[in-house]
Design a protein around this nucleic acid. Sequence first.
DNA 1: AAGTCAGTTATTTTT
DNA 2: TAACTGACTT
Length: 758
Amino acid sequence: MKTISFLDELNEVQYKAVTTIDGPVMVIAGPGSGKTRVLTYRIAYMMEQGINPHNILTLTFTNKAAREMKERLEKVVGPSSKFVWAGTFHSIFAKILRIEAEKIGFPSSFTIYDTDDAKSMLSHIINELNLDNKIYSTNLVYNRISSAKSLLISPTAYLQDTSLMEQDKYKRVPYIGQIYSLYAQRCKNAGAMDFDDLLFNTFILFHRNPDNVLEKYQQKFKYLLVDEFQDTNFMQYAILKKLITFPGSQINLCIVGDDAQSIYAFRGATIENILDFSKDFPHLKTFKLEQNYRSGKFIVNAANNVINYNIRQIKKEIWTDQSDSPKIGVVRALTDSEESRKVVDAIFEHKNRKHITNSEIAILYRTNAQSRSFEEQLRRANIPYKVYGGMSFFQRKEIKDMLAYFRLVVNQKDEEAFRRIVNFPKRGIGDMSIDKLLTHALDTGKTFWEAIDDQILSGKAQSSLVDFKKLISALHQYSLNNDADAVADMVYQKSGLSSHFKGDKSVEGVGRLENVEALMDAIRDYVENDEVVMDEDGEMIIEKSRTMVDYLQNISLLTDFDNENGDGDHVNLMSVHSAKGLEFDSVFVVGLEEKLFPSFLSLQSEEQINEERRLFYVAITRARKLLTLTYATSRMQYGKVVYNKPSRFLEEVGEENIANPVNQPRNLMMDSDPRARVLGSFTKSPKVNTAQSLYEIVPSPPSAFKVGSQVLHPRFGHGVIKSIDGAAGNLIAIVHFDSFREDDKRIMLKFAKMQVLN
DNA sequence: AAGTCAGTTATTTTT
DNA sequence: TAACTGACTT
């Protein structure tokens, strides 16, 4: 193997973090400090040192992070990168469970319940127990159960824990424990695991250790790397410890993270994991990556200022040697709609004067609901955009219905899937009939398939059920010997789904058909593009197979972000949470008002405010060159106009980092009475003309326009003149604008407020 | 079984 | 405001 050239690309700390392989290592990686590079090169270095890639396990939180790492690793070490186990906690553990499920009483074809499935199951249980679903809301119950699981509390343990039971009693929800217990039973009967179960059951598997299964994986995964460690919860850390702590272990565990970027405490992530890591492993070596390669100095200074308001943290000072980038812009607007107009004006400016492409621009907000006004303005300005988050492809009803068929065909015990499709397309089996059947099944301890034979229903419903049973069992037989695409086709035809979707000619119906066809294409793709990688020690096979079971596992752990094909040059709109790990040339952090960012729900406790602050820290460190912070003095919220103070975070940025001191938030902070502020805007501040653009276009005379001229139009943006015709005094230019792909515009030069750029 | 209407309730969400 | 739920109607 040739000498290690890639190590030259590392700074001193990065180099040490990459080459210190044995024993526990903690890498504290500030934003933009080359974290992914360190992770990839560390693996590459390990492989060069002769470590077998089969023995390396890398855990990330998102599929995207995992994919990025694998791609970069392949560039450095070539095809042998495939032998490294790299994936999300959930996908890696799902893979292990797929192999070992039977040891803990699950079928290896177990179904993965997504959040919707889990909540639906819970709501059925809550109804069956005749509990008030206003008090026992599925969200509340789901969250309680989820946090119990992440603390490794089993249903039995929950029911025996007096303090938990007291708590629930005090909160007037004493039956949470019972619901949890029933839920766990029902999942087991259905051969299903929810997202938390993928981790919980992995822990159970390692803890009970049937057939010494734990030793098998301890042997296999000799080297562990964990990314975004600040986002791990108690359960994840517990599993890691199982894998890495045993007599004679070298504790080759490398964790990478940044306590300042911990923003998922509300999902059970515990910042203690990273803060206490050194207590658990006293011989730990710590490396701090403090040089920021991403952002200019004002952004970095601002980030340091902000995070210093959080007392409890691992001390570090981020620095950069990029000193030429501009200060941070602060924009004040009177209303939320003015805010979006000003932002779009500024985007216009960035695009045309600073030549930043759409895809290098992001608008980040605290709540998804804020996207709307920005969408409206971007549409009006003809700037293409993409909103991230919201309903994912796999959450659409038609897709879930299709998948429910596939799931039931594969795993006939899947209760949620059964409920979903037993009467879809309509077969004359109403809710009453389904409830009757399932209650009978529960009472007699039979499966719902067996319950059908007991003929507790009559007429149409009964005969339809019998037909449905025959259909599913025939499809199941077929699925045993056929690839996923063939199974999908067969299900699509035989179930009546095909004629159902094709028969709907409404606009929505056509859209649904498109989605369904897209799903069928995706399955075909999956089967055709498969690749089988054999593990050389023969024990385990990393395999991308072609069965429906595999396809379902694959997609159930995907999110919409993962289907991003990256094509199209659009402005990016997303919540700050989803922006984590991304970077853009120009970033707008909007809605910086008290009660919005920080959220009103976090105002009660200091720790929650700290999390909001870390969130703000994440937001501003996404920016490479340009950062603009905006707020509105009034905003429409829930149909009412509210007046919120500018966010405390605006002050914490430090005015030395802000470009336009006129808009200094501090001045505004003083008027807390809304009326005073509105009055103030007339008397003290310069007049605000809402229609006026932030960045004025100086119209050029008609004579200034030539064929080939670059122009700036107030509404259409940057363009090039293709030709000019018409009589003198009434010249008409044919202009191709960047924002229009096909149609060139005819612009009358004597009227247009268009500026020549060159 | 499907449609209508009033009442209710509002974060963030890698998997 | 708007999206969702649950009760009630057809």
